[in-house]
């Protein structure tokens, strides 16, 4: 299981939880599992999210490995100028 931290405004779409647990070994599995377990998150995930793995931000990278030992944080999709 992987623990994922959700940003505040997503928590209402995930039973009010800040941290949620899903079965996943990479980012794609994580996003798929989140969408399935919490359908309210699916629109945001479809629009795009970034993920921080142990403090390093990934904008996409589906196949990045993750495990229970990692700090995983869901973040809005990064935009820049």
């Amino acid at each position: 299981m992987v623990r994922v931290k959700l940003w505040g405004s997503l928590r209402a779409l995930a039973d009010g939880e800040e941290w949620v647990e899903v079965e996943a070994s990479n980012f794609k599995e994580l996003l798929d599992a989140l969408s399935e377990k919490y359908p309210g998150l699916a629109p945001q995930i479809k629009r795009g999210v970034s993920l921080a793995l142990d403090g390093v931000i990934y904008r996409e990278a589906w196949f990045t490995k993750i495990g229970p030992e990692n700090e995983v944080v869901l973040m809005p999709y990064m935009v820049g100028g």
């Binding site: 931290k5 940003w7 921080a52 142990d54 403090g55 390093v56 931000i57 700090e71 944080v73 869901l74 973040m75």
Partner: peptide, 10 residues
């Protein structure tokens, strides 16, 4: 540091 936006800084 636990950053204000979620992740812990490296």
């Amino acid at each position: 540091t636990l950053s204000s936006y979620g992740p812990t800084f490296n």
